[in-house]
């Protein structure tokens, strides 16, 4: 280090000289260290063993040290990609469920067959007779009896406007007025879109539900049904709807008010849902 003696005081010059003497060795050592650090090849050579050791340690201790953090990242990633995973897995899961249900049905049928063999009640004899007479397996007849359709909800809807005349249901659900409106919108859309002459949309399937619609001139009835539905069942329901229409829907209605809704809802309930009430009348 050079000192410009003209610019600083004598005292400071002495101080700097003392510093130079005292720090000389340290400064030299520092300079050597800096050179070593700046020599990339030498630095790598010295550092490599430490890194290798750390990697070896990491291989052994990784689960303990980073398990929680990795799990958290994985969980987040999983949550964000939920829909993609569902899309990816749905077909395989669907096939698995289908196979499982089919197996369960087979096992149920076997159980029923065994029961049939061991029972001698009047009903069994009737089933046996029907089975022999129509050439249908007894197990199929009993299964059909067990899975008989049930009317869960029924709506009487004005055909053009979608306004509700009345409704009855086995359980509390969404606003029935809105359901009637949306059903009418779907129906109108399908009928307009495909324009198949005078044809009407008469069934919608949704999950375990089937919504049957029977159309009349100014109104239609929509019935939400669970259980298996054969052509004969559909015929039975259709006859039931016709008998309802014949009994209650003779007069035309201009304004839909709550009194009318209450009246028709009561009829619908008695006729389709709570059939015991109808029998008591």
């Amino acid at each position: 280090m050079t000192i410009d003696e003209n610019k600083i005081s004598e005292e400071e010059v002495h101080l700097l000289k003392i510093k130079e003497i005292l720090l000389k060795e340290d400064r030299e050592e520092l300079s050597i260290l800096r050179k070593k650090l700046e020599d990339e090849e030498a630095f790598n050579k010295r550092l490599t063993p430490y890194i290798e050791k750390h990697i070896e340690d990491l291989k052994v201790n990784f689960p303990d040290q980073y398990n929680e953090m990795v799990s958290k990242i994985f969980d987040e990633k999983l949550m964000n990609s939920r829909q993609e995973i569902i899309d990816l897995l749905s077909p395989s899961i669907g096939i698995m469920i289908k196979k499982y249900i089919s197996m369960q049905f087979e096992s149920l049928k076997e159980g029923i067959d065994n029961q049939v063999k061991n029972t001698f009640s009047a009903k069994t004899w009737k089933t046996k007779f029907t089975s022999k007479f129509y050439g249908v397996k007894e197990s199929d007849l009993i299964l059909k009896e067990m899975d008989k359709y049930q009317i869960q909800e029924v709506y009487l809807i004005q055909r053009n406007s979608g306004l509700l005349f009345g409704s009855a249901s086995k359980s509390v659900n969404l606003d029935q007025d809105v359901i009637a409106g949306m059903l009418t919108a779907i129906k109108s859309f399908a009928e307009d879109a495909f324009q198949q002459g005078a044809q009407d949309l008469d069934m919608i399937e949704y999950g375990t539900y089937k919504i049957l619609m029977q159309n009349f001139k100014t109104y239609y009835l929509a019935l939400a049904i669970t259980g298996s539905l054969s052509a004969a069942d559909k015929d039975e329901i259709s006859n039931n709807v016709l008998s309802f229409a014949d009994r209650y829907l003779g007069k035309s209605i201009s304004n839909i008010d709550e009194k009318i809704m209450e009246e028709y809802s009561k009829y619908l309930n008695e006729h389709f849902i709570n059939t015991n009430a109808r029998n008591q009348i």
């Binding site: 509700l164 009855a168 509390v172 029935q176 839909i256 709550e258 009561k266």
Partner: peptide, 18 residues
Amino acid sequence: MQETKYNISQGNMISKKV
């Protein structure tokens, strides 16, 4: 017996499609 539900009137409200 299963509980059933049907509309009970509170007054004489009219419905209109808009």
